[in-house]
């Protein structure tokens, strides 16, 4: 369980994290999405006590990180897999870490086995590929057998087999009742792994919703329509409550009404259609749409209700319309 309340971090004039409040619950994988510079790393650093919040607080299992009596047994973290001393062997690296966390050395062999690095335990870390380093970083996070795990970009540099392995590992850890918090810029990866996502942009929370909500909102909402009589058709669509955005190829993207309704309208008004295709938005496009205008959001001072993604997306669409005009 990770809880942030009004978490804010400012560096001089810059606000890296702006009044974040969220609760990350155990038993599921929670994704943490945001473009570079959105404040993901700063948030993770504050969770781990590496940075002090300017205001607000974040607690792990009810305590701030620095007050945890044995932090490695409560929180495991993978921040930067390459931030190791290349001269130590994998075993030696895990050895000092285990000692620092007050963890029995028996766990070293166990986690090496879990991540599949037993064979290279005596090899120097400096010679590891990025994928092997990621596995070592995950092993380090698992050392204390902690109920809360933070992973920053865990699939970076992994081959497809490795990605599948991480995906299953995280799902398994969540199924064991642990709190799993994973940041990633690979939206498609989150779609496969996460049950819930936090989306932030410019330090502010944009969405806090289930994956299903995010993708459902995206899918079905947009329909590509192409017609030689588009100019004639547009007023009918608008009167039916649709919003129309022109596409580069001469077609339009219609939002607000679904494909079935558009087809009926076209038949009713004898409009020939060349294309009528619902755009099944991926989490990626939903994410892009969500984060694109986060600056305007802050300027207008309108904060989206964290749970209500549908409203958020509509507001965003309206925003975009306004800025285009």
């Amino acid at each position: 369980m990770i809880e942030a309340r009004g978490l804010t971090k400012r560096y001089g004039e810059t606000t890296a994290v702006d009044n974040l409040s969220f609760t990350i619950t155990p038993g599921i994988v929670t994704g943490f999405l945001g473009p570079n510079g959105a404040g993901k790393s700063t948030t993770m650093r504050m969770i781990l006590g590496l940075d002090n919040p300017t205001s607000g607080s974040v607690t792990v299992n009810g305590k701030t990180y620095r007050d945890l009596p044995a932090p490695m047994r409560e929180v495991g973290a993978l921040l930067d897999a390459k931030a190791v001393h290349g001269g130590r062997t994998a075993w030696q690296h895990l050895r000092w870490l285990a000692q620092a966390g007050g963890i029995h050395r028996r766990r070293i062999d166990e986690v090496l086995d879990t991540v599949g690095l037993t064979g290279v335990a005596g090899k120097k870390v400096g010679g590891f590929s990025l994928g092997m380093s990621q596995r070592l970083g995950i092993a380090a996070a698992l050392l204390g057998d902690p109920p809360v795990l933070l992973f920053d970009e865990p699939v970076n540099g992994l081959d497809p087999e490795g990605i599948l392995w991480v995906r299953n590992l995280m799902k398994r850890l969540a199924a064991e009742g642990r709190t799993i918090f994973v940041s990633s810029h690979l939206m498609s990866e989150m779609q496969e792994t996460a049950d819930h996502v936090l989306v932030i942009g410019k330090g502010s929370l944009i969405a806090d919703a289930t994956i299903a909500d995010v993708t459902r909102q995206g899918s079905g909402a947009t329909v590509k329509v192409a017609s030689p009589a588009l100019a004639e058709f547009t007023p009918f669509l608008e009167s039916a409550g649709a919003t129309i955005a022109p596409e580069a190829d001469g077609g339009v993207l219609v939002t607000g009404i679904d494909a079935a309704r558009i087809g009926e309208l076209a038949a009713m008004h004898r409009i020939p259609l060349h294309e009528l295709s619902p755009r099944r938005a991926s989490l990626e496009s939903a994410f892009m749409e969500l984060t694109r205008n986060s600056v305007e959001y802050q300027a207008n001072g309108s904060r989206p209700d964290a749970g209500d993604l549908a409203e958020t997306a509509r507001a965003l669409a309206g925003q975009e319309e306004n800025t285009n005009v």
Partner: peptide, 17 residues
Amino acid sequence: SEYASGMMRLTMTAMPR
């Protein structure tokens, strides 16, 4: 060397004091 490699973050998460 720990600051240079970034390993100090690991040291400080293992022992925040």
